[in-house]
């Protein structure tokens, strides 16, 4: 059974200037355990699609099912890592990581075992009693990832989670995310506008533009993927293809003649 099935999904917003169609009859099927990256330029509808998958937003038309059940609201089986910092500042790191388990009524002793496991996995065992304010942005993202994994969803939705981080931190978090993904076998849908991030992570890249799926590409490169990928000719071709799709090919800035 597919992890996600989207049929005829259309989302329209009424804005100051009239009706905007954010998603226009999107069709998408994601098998279990796949790592799918949604990529596209700003305003292409990729975050809207993710929010619809999460059940944070109801479709204007069309249906979404997850593991065969219709999506009609947020559900802990579909975890979300948000773009913004959502670590609860008034809870210590360990309490943040255990939040989903607590919501499910898991007893404290049992909860602690899972929390410790994921704190260790993301390398924050020593910070378990720290307040979020004492952590760097990258460490807070680790908390958010540990929180999402500890709640044990079958599907994990990630909305540009690493957008605000520096290159080195982001690369480390990619490795961490892939390791956790391989260990736990979750399905991941990851939104980004960064082509290199997509190439580093994805089994499959879905390109969105103006609310529609315009490309759906399998990424064949072996894992673990290293920086060597930058020199691989197939990867270079795919990268150029994606940049074309994002609209970078035919644009040159020419200043008007003085």
């Amino acid at each position: 059974m597919s992890a996600v099935n989207v049929t005829g999904l259309t989302v329209r917003f009424t804005t100051e200037t009239g009706v905007t169609t954010a998603l226009d009859h999107v069709e998408l099927d994601i098998p279990s355990r796949e790592f799918v990256v949604l990529i596209g330029p700003s305003g292409c509808g990729k975050s809207t699609l993710l929010n619809a998958l999460a059940g944070l937003l109801s479709p204007t038309e069309g249906t979404i099912t997850s593991a065969g059940e219709p999506v009609d609201g947020p559900d802990p089986r579909r975890g979300v890592v948000f773009q913004q910092d959502t670590t609860f500042p008034w809870m210590r790191v360990a309490d943040n990581v255990g939040y989903g388990l607590r919501a499910r009524g898991v007893p404290a002793a049992e909860r602690n075992v899972v929390v410790e496991e994921y704190l260790e996995a993301v390398g924050l065992s020593d910070q378990r009693h720290a307040w979020p304010k004492e952590l760097s942005g990258g460490m807070r993202k680790r908390v958010a990832i540990a929180t999402a994994f500890a709640a044990d969803p079958t599907l994990l939705l990630m909305d540009e989670p690493f957008g605000s981080l520096d290159f080195v931190t982001r690369t480390r978090l990619h490795d961490l995310l892939l390791a956790l993904w391989q260990r736990t076998g979750k399905t991941i849908v990851f939104v980004t506008h960064d082509v290199d991030e997509a190439l580093a992570l994805a089994d499959r890249i879905v390109v969105l533009s103006q609310g529609a799926v315009v490309d759906d590409i399998d990424v064949p490169f072996a894992r673990p993927r290293t920086d060597e990928l930058r020199r691989d000719s197939a990867a270079i071709d795919l990268r150029r293809h994606l940049l074309d799709r994002l609209g970078l090919a035919d644009q040159r800035t020419d200043l008007p003649a003085a």
Binding site: A54, D75, P76, G79, D85, T86
Partner: peptide
Amino acid sequence: RRYINNARVLGAS
């Protein structure tokens, strides 16, 4: 709102 959203998707009532 993001804190409430996050709590909800983690399954909080």
